[in-house]
Write a protein that binds this DNA or RNA. Structure first.
Lengths: 335, 335
DNA sequence: TTGTACGCGTTATCAG
DNA sequence: CTGATAACGCGTACAA
């Protein structure tokens, strides 16, 4: 069952050539007779030979692996990034070690050590929340910080354009004729919450509009807060015609209370969320318009930058990935 | 920046000993003088030496890696399993390659080839849905099928006890005094849907109860179906006092319509879901009681079995992991 | 107690 | 065109 893997030596023997020749034949080197190559290839197939990447790596000084170091328990952000990275690298070229530090610094150190010991060619670090995180410092391999930027401007970080996302959401509402737009969002200590609000307010200002509800409603990222804030908001200002929610979770809470209050979505009040978390957004009643952070693209980009950096030299600073509007029924134009 | 890693040779030189002695010193072999060991260890620390696992693997015939091959796009099932595996292995002993085949057979083959080439010590295969999937066949490393069992009984599979889960849900409702229990669930072609229903019906039968609503309401795994089915159910049988939903998504839809119909949860109708998908269950109104599949434990178990199999021999057949009841407010006892 | 020498599986550089 | 031979970084018998 667990038989030892076939080596090049056995392939060579079966084909009746030296190890060196077998290697060349399989690697498509030109200096080998066609018939010989055929014989070797057939032998390899017959034995189901698969070259030992570890040995190759010893020579080429390249393991063909990268580490994805995350702190994001549920994998909500890491997974799309992983998938983007996977298809940018090509699954046959590079494999990805996924490590979850679970927000624990000690665990992160452990993982880091293990990954370096495995001689990963590069590292993608995905933060738990989109605020600057400590740099890992000088490392023998290139590092890209994704989603959460590094505190050190000398590192290369790839982040979501939250300001642009906020602007996009409000712009969409305005284009659909909304004028009394409120904003309910999450924890004010999150840079993302601040940025999305900033973008939203900027777009309102351009239009000469004021924010409805007198303030940005900061709270936390839960559905319950979405419900609570909406109740307070409606008391303060019953005449709103749109709500921009800082996350899809919050948006679900908003929808819930609007239904309770017999306010129709979208004809009376439009609602737009943030994250495009499919399970929440697509299944809402009505399906929720939202802002997608393009995390897969961010992952692809991270992979590309890392790829370029391997062997070459890495850039620095913070690069921003634009958001994308997803239109569903919760913001259909006013009938 | 991307400087070449420190090798044992450099450590040995700095410590003024041979490579062999350095190796022994660092690996805690007894046959080395204490003072020498100290010197070597200090040298290693000073150079920030980290042994090349690839080279070690070449010798020991063990890479210290395992592959986690999934087909589950959103990582909903894979991630808990990964986390369980991670802490069963110990992050410093074993690292995990996470590969997503995205339901594509060709991609799966590619990943498999790459993983074997990387000489993983074992493989955990996580299926997309909890039905039997094709075996990967005879492989040079041990394989564990998790969540979705292999079609081949000669393989070792670890699966959720869906029958027990269904039984657990209904048992909970019965214990809280419910008698008119309905069951709304997902796609009838899923073994999990059938099994959960089977367990539920068995427990009802023990109690001499009939299923409310005349039938098991199979449909699909969406919130929308939960809403639609609940409306039909209420027309057919307005007197129900509990609903067992086959997933938390469906349960959300059920709650939504019960609210619309002014039926209070839980005082008039209790609702229990399945999956313990936190974002859906914990944030529901009211918070949703549900059945947890213990996927982390399943992952830990998979890791343990794999660990035992590496070097030893692997068992076969299908092992079942029990579910766990999560009590929240949606099933509080009848006041 | 320490060092020498060999091998793990592969690629690359030479001679032949 | 093909085949010895020397690396890659490390562990381990064996000799000193």
């Amino acid at each position: 069952m667990t038989t030892r893997p076939v080596t090049l030596r056995e392939v060579a023997k079966l084909a009746g050539v030296s190890i060196a020749t077998a290697s060349k034949a399989l690697n498509g080197q030109p200096q080998v007779r066609a018939s010989t190559r055929d014989r070797v290839i057939r032998a390899a197939e017959q034995l189901n030979f698969s070259p030992n990447t570890l040995a190759q790596g010893l020579i080429t000084q390249r393991s063909g692996t990268v580490g994805l170091l995350t702190s994001d328990l549920e994998g909500r952000f890491s997974i799309p990034i992983l998938m983007g990275a996977e298809d940018a690298f090509g699954s046959d070229q590079t494999s990805v070690f996924l490590c979850d530090a679970r927000g624990d610094n000690v665990r992160e150190k452990h993982h880091l050590r293990a990954l370096l010991s495995r001689r990963v060619d590069g590292l993608i670090v995905v933060g738990a929340r989109p605020d600057a995180r400590p740099s890992l410092g000088e490392l023998p391999v290139p590092v890209i910080y994704a989603y959460a930027p590094s505190e050190d401007p000398a590192d290369l970080s790839l982040v979501t354009d939250n300001i642009g996302g906020g602007r996009l959401a409000v712009d969409h509402l305005i284009r659909h004729g909304r004028r009394r737009i409120a904003h309910i969002t999450g924890d004010a200590t999150y840079g993302a919450a601040q940025d999305r609000a900033t973008g939203a307010l900027a777009r309102l200002a351009e239009e000469g509009l004021e924010l409805a509800g007198d303030q940005v409603w900061f709270g936390n990222w839960s559905e319950a807060w979405g419900r609570g804030a909406t109740r307070m908001l409606l008391q303060r200002d019953p005449e709103i015609d749109a709500v921009f929610a800082g996350s899809d979770e919050i948006a679900r809470g908003v929808l819930d209370v609007l239904h309770q209050e017999k306010l129709d979505v979208p004809s009376q009040v439009a609602v737009i969320g943030f994250d495009n978390w499919n399970i929440l957004a697509a299944n809402a009643r009505p399906p929720l318009s939202t802002i997608d952070m393009n995390l897969e693209q961010l992952g692809r980009l991270a992979a590309q930058r890392l790829f370029a950096a391997i062997g070459g030299t890495l850039g620095s600073g913070t690069e921003t990935v634009p958001c994308r509007l997803i239109t569903r029924e919760s913001t259909a134009p006013v009938g």
